[in-house]
Design a protein around this nucleic acid. Sequence first.
DNA 1: ATGGGTGTATTAGTTGATATAGTACACATA
DNA 2: TATGTGTACTATATCAACTAATACACCCAT
Lengths: 130, 130
Amino acid sequence: MLAQIDPRSAVPIWEQIVNQIKELVLKEMLSPGDKVPSVRETASLLLVNPNTVSKAYKELENQGIIETLRGRGTFVRENLKLTFDEERISLLREKVRQVVIEGSYIGVKVEDINQWLLEIQAELGGKIHD
Amino acid sequence: MLAQIDPRSAVPIWEQIVNQIKELVLKEMLSPGDKVPSVRETASLLLVNPNTVSKAYKELENQGIIETLRGRGTFVRENLKLTFDEERISLLREKVRQVVIEGSYIGVKVEDINQWLLEIQAELGGKIHD
DNA sequence: ATGGGTGTATTAGTTGATATAGTACACATA
DNA sequence: TATGTGTACTATATCAACTAATACACCCAT
């Protein structure tokens, strides 16, 4: 289920795991109530340290994506509710701003980015939580 | 001209400088041929080490934004030409993908992002190099 | 009760990027 | 010649990320 990790990426391994799981949930390849592979299982699959996976799961729990039941395992939360975090939204907008600036230097226009948005929405299935 | 730096940001100082200058050029507050503040001047203004500024300028030169003339100073390149780098474009698209995924968890829809794009385009003046 | 599977906590150590500090060099220009 | 420029080099400090090894607390099936 989980794809490979790039240990040489500037993106920390734990963050790559977080992103992958969030994407899987969004694509409904992981649904509320589903069990997430255990820390040790994921660690041996991705050839990383269990601590690194644990850090990813902890972050996912902080974000309200998953919940852990001691001794039982980790599961996708039943009631995935939107978190309205003004600061995170603000940071996201800043990220978009950087994308626009970066794009302007490599020939990617705003219209191109908008086209990407539509494509990505289709790829992800356009599922939205509420 | 250059705004303040956040030393506690996860974004390295040299990268913050790179981003700021690229934004200034895009907004035409720095035009081709204009002199960029010297390494030492920028360093004392931003209260950072000259080496850090030098690293930023080196990166900007690699990206073809500025050029250095030994003993004279650093200037915005006269012929800012678009660099068509497939890899950078691909990375940028991946960034947009992450924005969409992240947004879906905090109530930001694709339509909202598109709205941001228009606003940002207006803010930046919509100048495009060629 | 026991054993195996869970997540978690702790401590220790390595690595790499970042940033600072100080110094020195080469070049252009007034 | 003197000053301002970018650059190079070495050394040091700091921090995040990652690994490693171990231990603990909990659930559950046997």
